Simulated assay, not measured.
Amino acid sequence: MKAVVVDRFGPLEQLRVAELPDPTPGPGEVVLDVHAAGVNYPDALMVQGQYQIKPPLPFTPGAEAAGIVSAVGEGVRHLKVGDHAATFTGTGAFAEKLLAPAAQVTPLPPGFSFDIAASLTLAYGTSYHALVNRAQLQAGETLLVLGAAGGVGLAAVMIGKALGARVIAAASSEEKLALTRQHGADETINYASEDLRARLKELTGGQGPNVVYDPVGGDYTEAAFRSVAWGGRYLVVGFANGEIPRLPLNLPLLKGASLVGVFWGEFARRDPRANVANLTQLARWVGDGTIRPVISERYTLEQAPEALRALLERRVTGKVTLVP
């Protein structure tokens, strides 16, 4: 099989596509013929050795995939050869075949898109966990989403609307903001040309947003936190800007507000049943059209460096996938 290989931690351009032996499932494992693999920001960090988890070298990156089960190990009961399925494995998805623990593989309903299934787990799972489990976002509250046109940001916009919130989307261009409006944003802020705090004050009558969803970090974090409503919840999702911000700790005190960490991968590991329930709800919403995941571009395995570079440079809207 063909697979993307990381021989050493370093620049994205050092990725290569190699011929590797086809995997064979052991007890409790399955092999998935990959039809689409989601491309995510942590994948790029992992290749460069900048993620909190460093796999043993060499390894194949790619956290999530969807495809068709081609081999089943002993003891697997809920899957059979020919089933369409999706999985989150953390690594290994940028390949023609993926070996996965059967417990982490979910059968897909008939007709469910491989592209969407390969993009649902991390981005939408993260955003659902953040807004529902961590922030406990309520209908009628105001949600501010930073980086709102990216993979997790756009997911947060859609999920926020599905939960009945008023959604304010912030992004760096009018093109990106137009995409957020197409998917439910009630108001938008171009933080490249508008003052974030002043615009938030205007849009919320001086009250501020109840929940802030921040996958970006960097310069806008403090301004957004200073704008949060009394008793607000600030979701720390990631640092796509590349800079981990520092906040004066008097701000949570003065606002009676909470800084809330969001680590979906660890949540999924510690509470798999709750994670499955979240993903089941997301699949229902996809099925009935409540949320409409956006796949903006598809890349080949050979184009993996290009896909990851686009993520790091924040040129991606919605989600992108690799198609072996």
Rank of each mutant, 00 (worst) to 15 (best):
Leu45Pro: 09
Gly26Ala: 08
Arg314Phe: 04
Ser258Trp: 07
Pro215Met: 02
Phe267Val: 02
Ala274Ile: 00
Gly217Asp: 02
Arg166Ile: 06
Leu196Arg: 08
Arg16His: 04
Glu266Gly: 07
Val39Ala: 06
Asn190Trp: 06
Gly289Ala: 00
Lys80Cys: 12
Pro61Ala: 02
Ile295Val: 14
His183Val: 05
Trp264Leu: 09
Gly232Ile: 08
Ala178Met: 00
Glu243Pro: 06
Gly218Ser: 06
Arg314Glu: 05
Asp195Pro: 11
Arg309Pro: 01
His35Lys: 14
Tyr128Glu: 03
Glu243Ser: 11
Val69Cys: 10
Pro58Glu: 14
Gln52Gly: 14
Pro21Lys: 00
Thr60Ile: 01
Leu144Trp: 10
Glu141Leu: 03
Tyr124Val: 08
Val132Lys: 15
Leu15Gly: 09
Gln104Pro: 02
Pro23His: 04
Leu251Asn: 08
Ala169Val: 07
Trp230Asp: 13
Ala65Arg: 09
Ala304Lys: 09
Arg314Val: 04
Leu308Cys: 07
Asp22Met: 12
Val286Gly: 01
Pro58Arg: 11
Thr126Gly: 03
Phe59Asn: 10
Ala307Gln: 05
Arg246Gln: 00
Gln52Leu: 13
Phe59Tyr: 15
Gly206Asp: 10
Gln50Arg: 15
Ala223Arg: 12
Val157Arg: 02
Gly256Asp: 12
Ile53Gln: 15
Pro209Ser: 10
Pro209Met: 08
Gln104Ala: 13
Leu122Ser: 12
Ala155Asp: 10
Asp214Trp: 02
Ala44Leu: 03
Asp83Leu: 04
Ser258Gln: 11
Gly125Cys: 01
Leu137Asn: 07
Ile244Pro: 01
Lys176Cys: 00
Lys54His: 15
His35Gly: 09
Leu253Asp: 08
Glu202Gly: 03
Leu308Pro: 08
Ala274Gln: 09
Leu235Val: 12
Glu222Trp: 04
Ala171Leu: 04
Tyr234Arg: 11
Phe9Arg: 15
Ala130Trp: 09
Val316Ala: 00
Gly256Val: 10
Asp83Cys: 11
Ala162Cys: 05
Ala65Pro: 09
Pro245Gly: 03
Asp22Val: 07
Ala148Thr: 05
Val216Thr: 04
Lys80Gln: 15
Val320Leu: 03
Met158Lys: 12
Ala103Leu: 05
Ala71Asp: 15
Asp7Trp: 13
Pro215Lys: 03
Ala178Gly: 00
Gly140Ser: 01
Leu122Thr: 13
Pro101Val: 02
Pro61Asn: 05
Tyr299Glu: 02
Gly164His: 09
Ser258Asp: 07
Met1Tyr: 06
Leu20Glu: 03
Asp288Gly: 01
Leu12Pro: 06
Lys80Ser: 14
Ala156Pro: 03
Glu297Asp: 04
Leu200Asn: 06
Ala135Trp: 15
Ser193Arg: 15
Gln104Lys: 15
Gly218Leu: 04
Leu15Trp: 09
Lys54Pro: 13
Lys176Gly: 00
His129Ala: 11
Gly92Ser: 10
Pro11Trp: 07
Pro252Gly: 11
Gly256Cys: 07
Val216Met: 03
Val262Phe: 02
Leu308Ile: 09
Leu57Lys: 06
Gly111Asp: 08
Pro27Asn: 01
Ala229Tyr: 11
Arg270Trp: 08
Gly208Glu: 06
Arg298Gly: 06
Ala117Gln: 12
Lys201Ser: 14
Arg292Ser: 13
Arg270Thr: 14
Leu99Asn: 08
Phe59Arg: 07
Val260His: 12
Leu301Phe: 04
Met46His: 13
Asp43Asn: 12
Trp285Pro: 05
Ala93Gln: 14
